[in-house]
Each structure stands twice: as structure tokens, then as C-alpha cells.
């Protein structure tokens, strides 16, 4: 698997850059219009999570082939930060839960938009969100 693009997330402007790159990659991979928008929206939410909670991080996006389910192609998005980490991941994934002034929609929302979603977080070390969406 090759990493196709990597975007540094340091400010709100980078959120726009990340989701435009994600949109371009998804189109290149042959996703349909509705899925491209869902992917861009998911990227927007995880990127915002970095800006709001970790200040800086990075998002890598690549094409990915499924080992199961008949070798389907998809897009993989990895959002990494070295922020404070999430104390209670289960709580953070609850819809409407926010430690800040947000809607508490970001992470659970991104999970709904994608096919696969994993989150790994360590206090003081940072958070990594890995999500995938397969072509239909």
C-alpha cells in the first residue's frame, strides 16, 4: 500500500486542504459523487478534531485493497496527532458528547460516514484515527 497524500493539520485552513485532497483522491479511485462527499465530510470532522484538541497533526490518505471481500478497492484515511489523547474513547464516541463547545458530532459522525473506523488513543501521547471506505 502506498501513501498517496499527506496533509499537515495546523490550522482551520488545513482542514479545507485535507478534504479537497481527499475529494480528489476519492474521485480518482472512482467513488461516486455521494460517497466522495461523505468521505470529504468525514475528513473534515477528523481534521477538525485535530485542530480543536491537539492543535497539530497530520492526515494521510491512500488507496487500499481489501484482503477479504473479493479484493475490493477503497480509500484509507489516517489522522494522527500528538495531542493530549482521549481519556475515555467510548465517551468521546458518544453522539453529542463534547468536552469543548462543539456539537459532539465529529468522531461518531465520521464513523457513520465511513465503512470502517478505528480509534487508538493514549493519554499524553496522542490519538490515531484510521478509517476506510470501500467502493460499492
Amino acid at each position: 500500500m502506498e501513501t498517496d497524500t499527506q496533509t499537515e493539520i495546523r490550522s482551520a485552513m488545513d482542514i479545507v486542504t485535507a478534504r479537497q485532497r481527499g475529494r480528489a483522491l476519492a474521485l480518482e479511485l472512482g467513488f461516486n459523487g455521494a460517497d466522495v462527499t461523505l468521505i470529504a465530510a468525514a475528513i473534515s470532522e477528523v481534521a477538525r478534531n485535530i485542530v480543536d484538541h491537539a492543535k497539530k497533526g497530520e492526515i494521510s490518505m491512500s488507496s487500499v485493497n481489501s484482503s477479504i471481500s473479493g479484493g475490493r478497492r477503497g480509500i484509507q484515511i489516517i489522522a494522527r496527532d500528538e495531542g493530549p489523547g482521549i481519556r475515555d474513547v467510548a465517551q468521546a464516541m458518544q453522539y453529542g458528547y463534547s468536552t469543548r463547545k462543539g456539537l459532539g458530532v465529529g468522531l461518531p459522525g465520521a464513523k457513520w460516514l465511513m465503512d470502517e473506523f478505528e480509534i487508538a488513543s493514549e493519554i499524553g501521547r496522542g490519538t490515531t484515527v484510521t478509517m476506510k471506505k470501500w467502493k460499492r
Binding site: G33, T37, A41, Y95, G109, W112
Partner: peptide, 11 residues
């Protein structure tokens, strides 16, 4: 498509 994504996000 934007409306659909908003619905999926529960917005």
C-alpha cells in the same frame, strides 16, 4: 450530496 452527508452526520 451535501444534504445527504449532513443527514448521515445527524446534522
Amino acid at each position: 450530496d451535501v444534504a445527504f452527508a449532513m443527514v448521515q452526520l445527524g446534522l
